[in-house]
Design a protein around this nucleic acid. Sequence first.
DNA 1: AGCACGCCGACT
DNA 2: GTCGGCGTGCTC
Length: 822
Amino acid sequence: VSVQQARRYLAEVIVDVNARETDRAYHYAIPEEWRERVFIGMRVLVPFGPRRVEGYIVSFAQESETPADKIRPILRLLDDYPALTPELIELSEWLCERYLCTRAQAVQALLPGGMRLRSTLVLEASGKIPQALDRQEREILAYLDHQGPQVKTELLNHHPSWRRPLARLLEKGAVRERYVEQTGVKEKRVTYAVLKMDKETLLEKLDRLQANAFKQKEVALWLLQHGGSARLRDLLAATKASRSTVAALRQRGILELEQREERRNPYEGRFSGEREKKLVLTPAQARAYSAIMDMLKTRQAHTALLQGVTGSGKTEVYLQAIEACVQTGRQAIVLVPEIALTPQMVERFKRRFGDEVAVLHSRLSPGERYDEWRRIRRGEVGIAVGARSAVFAPFERLGLIIIDEEHELSYKQEENPKYHAREVAYFRALYHGATVVLGSATPSLEVRFAAAKGRISHIVLPERVNQRALPPVEIVDMRAELRQGNRSIFSRRLYEAITEKLARREQMILFLNRRGYATFILCRACGYVARCPSCDVSLTYHYLNSLPILRCHYCGHAEEAVGRCPECGSPHIRNFGTGTQKVEEELLRQFPGARVIRMDVDTTATKGSHERLLRSFGRREGDILLGTQMIAKGLDFPGVTLVGILTADTSLNLPDFRAAERTFQLLTQVAGRVGRHEAPGEVILQTYHPEHYAIQDAVVQDYERFFQKEIQIRRSLDYPPFWEMTVFTAAHELQEEAFRLAKETERWLRRSFADDPDVIIHEATAAPLSRLQGRYRFHQVIKYKSYRKVKKELLAAYLHARAKARKVDGMLTVDVNAQMVL
DNA sequence: AGCACGCCGACT
DNA sequence: GTCGGCGTGCTC
């Protein structure tokens, strides 16, 4: 240690500047007085050109190639502990290589967003006024005097012409620049009042107080009753005392005020009681459990697919494996799709493990998130449950990573770094010798294929815990309905079922994968369809506070809906397709008195609304839960006896190679919401493609049959899992330019991989979403057998094409191991 | 990515 | 002459 300490002269620092040009370590001097307190992985504030930015120490050095006069000292340590562990530093490096992102982006993904430092340069009048000032200089000074200090970049954005006169004012000293660092979330500190003497001394001392010091006595006794220390706020509230009373007690040395750190606990006061007991495992569960135990015990990296139908008790296996893992002093991460991270799911973990589990999800405040993260970082908890980014939970003795609903697309991040949580889990498992368990009723083709090839273990839970058969699924051919004159959203069969369930006061779930009112609007006179002005999609009809508006689901553009066709003026303009809003309206019309709870992005936008709606349905305050994707997963309501899938085809018609897989998974998932308890359930599935294999196989819940068919298609069309796919996307305001950029990428790739049989380079083509936010989009797809063999060339192609795109004001992005091609 | 600098055509 | 737009280069 002492040798290392002695050598801490220079720190190699990654700066939080997201640019290729600055994507490397910079050397900074470590001020002498910090040499004992500086560690690898710490966040620091450093000068960077004319700016100050956040940086991360990735190593120490004694000497540097950089001339000594260029090396500047670290300005500040941002934490008193290293935010990044050595493993996370390595992981950030791996993320860059794997997903072709910058180091700054990689590190940002690893840390809770709220803790990032934001530095702004603020201008203020110095009060010193030189004599010779021109008109503009006087104007700026007057502005600053009047409006107070201004953020420099904002000021110059509003008044670009002020750049030069401002520079002169700075030189003359009439205006000052000052850096303001917003440190991001910090520990929450709360003032406590603490008694400074024992009971006897206190009572004695109180006796000797003046007779009229009622309040002081009251406060001191209250504090004594409450264990000698309490939050100052609580004390003042309870005793109705004022600060001056407390100050008087302080003066007499009776109590002292202390700043204490306080945890922002999102589950304050809940789950503190008795822990839920383990359930008795079924023989199949016990076999799964012991298979996982065997892998854990080796302390070597292992992966297993845990495949079990909905209701087969995967979660109980997870819980017991986690418990065993934690008992041996190792830690566990559980990933759940954000959409399935419902209160029900969190409660299950909290009831079992109480405060031993840290929960990370998007509905926490930045402060709560930071505190949960720090409990993990300090090793105070052994378990982290969360969505995708929880895979970065900074544990140092990781033993087990569970990815539930492994097939979910949300495990792939859509922004840089475009990582897949499963791949990050593999990296971490290798580092720690940990076990990865991938759980699903409908595994992704990649994972199921890996199990078939023996690359990962395959554990199967063949039946439901309660031995209840899966609910019968009935297909309704909507084409036949139409032929027989039923133009309603509800088939006659579904209509009857809803009527019957309502009469019996049973609950039901209706699923529709589309929000809004109508999917598009069309003029029957001239064929005009309302489209987004900046994206290549039709606008969706919504009601916002009972006002009809047209909205783009991709960029958020909204416009008022008019009763006449803007092209030909015809009044015969009407809605086609159906969204959740319209279904809700139809339900209320056709089933008067039915209580409908609608759940989609529009009704769950505000904090807590998601939980509120679910709880309300759980308390049977609604008969029908109508919703999109978000009701497909993780929900468990004993009273539900009917699931209606209004159109099973929406996802089937997506122009993506995973359309069939997605459809099968979604239908199986939704059907699984019913009949988990005593009441038998049924599922009614409406479709225009009853003969499609994804639908046929979902109806009988035959994953294996689906897998066999789909894997053959993937093989014959050269899709994953046989090839990995990387997609370059070129975007430009002009269609020709976007195409040219994609073509340029294609050309470069073809030159790099001449006739490599392990690489397939596709022709540049228009993206299915051919225009987005005002830019035309073209794809360039490349497939390969081994990333290791192509990564250098991929990076070169990317940098080349990106540089070209820059020059013409275009965009070029890359998605390594793309999961979706839209 | 920011930010400053410096060049150059368009104005008072 | 100066103003304002934009390309270029640097950041330990």
